[in-house]
Design a binder for these strands. Sequence first.
DNA 1: GTAGGGTTAG
Length: 797
Amino acid sequence: MSNALDVRTVANRYATLLQLCRSRNPTSYPLAQTIHAHMIAFGFKPRGHILNRLIDFYCKSSNIAYARHLFDEIPEPDIVARTTLIAAYSAAGNLKLAREVFGGTPLSMRDTVFYNAMITGYSHNNDGHAAMELFRDMRREAFRPDNFTFTSVLGALALIADQKKQCQQIHGAVLKSGTGFVTSVLNALISVYVKCASSPLESSSSLLGAAKKLFDEMPERDELTWTTIITGYVRNDDLATARGILDGMTEKLEVAWNAMISGYVHRGFIQEALEMFRKMHMMGIRLDEFTYTSVISACANGGLFKHGKQVHAYILRTERKPEPDFSLSVNNALVTLYWKCGKVDEAREIFNAMPVRDFVSWNAILSAYVNVGRIEEAKSFFKEMPERNILSWTVMISGLAQNGFGEEGLKLFNQMRMEGFEPCDYAFAGAITSCAVLGALEHGRQLHAQLVQLGHDSSLSAGNALITMYARCGVVEASNCVFLTMPYLDSVSWNAMIAALGQHGHGLQAIKLFEEMLKEDLVPDRITFLTVLSACSHAGLVKEGRHYFDSMCGFYGITPGEDHYARLIDLLGRAGKFSEAKDVLKSMPFEPGAAIWEALLAGCRIHGNMELGIQAAEQLFELMPQHDGTYVLLSNMYATAGRWNDVAKVRKLMRDRGIKKEPGCSWVEVENKVHVFLVDDTVHHEVQAVYNHLEQLVLEMRKLGYVPDTKFVLHDMENEHKESALSTHSEKLAVVFGLMKLPLGATIRVFKNLRICGDCHNAFKYMSKVVGREIVVRDGKRFHHFRNGECSCGNYW
DNA sequence: GTAGGGTTAG
């Protein structure tokens, strides 16, 4: 400074100017920067209090790097600058740097505010334990906790699952410290009791009672108090009490009303949510973006497209100058409203017209494509996304899995991890579903282990996915184990477990579980009945199946869809009750579609009902000429009847229509080792070896007095049919290989889809007795358990 | 210099 102006005077003036700026007022940050720019131009070096203020402003305007630069220039930064920096690093999610500043500060310099900042930092970054630890350190070093400390610590405590005792301890400490009447501290206490109550480990009523007592006895309540107690009851699913408190509230507090509305929406009380909205409007309570988004979401979930549009129109009429945040969240809700009401392309139009978009907007469109099965569009949209978060990945992974692209789903899951995203339980659920699609048991087991390691094992979505995965991979015992140990169950879990039992031929157990579900006052949905009907069909429980079909239509008032009828036809067809099946066909309110004809054809194949089978196949050829399943079923039906010329005709038809038969590939698992057999046009040498064993086995079987009914595998193996038989029966050969070559006592599981005809069903029964071990074999989505000459599906075949 | 509530994407 070349002129004669006194440094102290200049400093005072700068300090006065900075007083005009307020660190909690974002609009003043540019002014503070301008003042700093002036200092630099003027050659003034800020120190002490002024420098601290500047560091604070740079932190707040999210230029932490520059704030750090200023901080590093100070020879001995004081406690205020350090505190500011810690708060800034924590807010930006950089705990490591915050921790560094914290650790580099000598004990003699520290104070309560300094500790408070670090405790809050941990709490904001979801590390409740570290925050508690620091709180203990602080008390050990004899720093007196104040209001801020308690509110932060209680916030941290709410992050820890098992914390009832600590709650009470801190409550005691609060009372001792004399802050027990401070509203902010009491709010935090109520909040933590309430959060505690919603933990599965605690009994909610006593903790909610403690919260309510504090609330009732409070000397003074502020807005936060009301919101906290109301959201507390909402979160604990006690909407009635929440509503009672809200109705007794004199303040016109929109935050509490919004919480109530969203509570109703989450619990599916659409009408109540809309009624609250109307009432708010009538009482002149401020409606804001939170209100609108919840109400639009209510309409989306209830399929009330017209109502949703009315709300939209109302917003456009009344909100003249919407803030950017406002229109962003409302538009996001609208996008969801449109696609959930079946208008995906309109949703996309809204999205395209949005001036600002965030993750929610992008993910909403992605889920729209995924949910309606427009998977190609979903894939290219996913690639287009400028940024992806964990949800984007999850939606895409489970979307791929649910549409049958298991391999792509798993690939994406791995890619997600490679890009540094820690998968959440939903992402795991997607990957596990991929394994279910692929029948990849070993991979599924690994994912299960990782799930446990990462502490996601109480997750509902992952648990449900595991039940299905184990069942689809042939290990229904594991499904049951998951089902029994899950802390929470929803109707999806029950449906999944009933399906698992049904798929494995345990029809009676499936029905028993279904009855248990009814006892728990859970309302069965259309999926539940699909599952129950399948279970009956697989176990041959014809009478029971009919009964449930009728009770679904009558008692539960569910209109049966084509899928329900298909299950019924399947049930009757597999039982050989063709005249009844024909009656159902006639009585149906719509023309039978492909699913129904396919079910009928499957029944005809089993029972050799050639006439009806051919008729069904003709319908299927018309409806979906490229569907290879029809050809296989028809050809198997002919083969069972020994009509080889007709088999040849079907094969020619396939060639003419360009339908490729997939190369045979099968795998067998014995004692956690998987053996894979490949059969292409040429016969793989391992299969040849199996074939030799098979011949031996048949000789053995004959010696033991077992004469295959007509053919089993042998008839196919003669002369010109030998090669094709080897490929179509490679799976069965693999089982034989497993039976003969591998150690005794282990269960043999075949994951590849075997199309089981009556003869091989008999043969498997026989073999299970001869070799004295359990054989689990997949047939479509179903499994057969052969043990001791019997099968889990009874004598249905 | 530090704390605390409500929304939308699975």
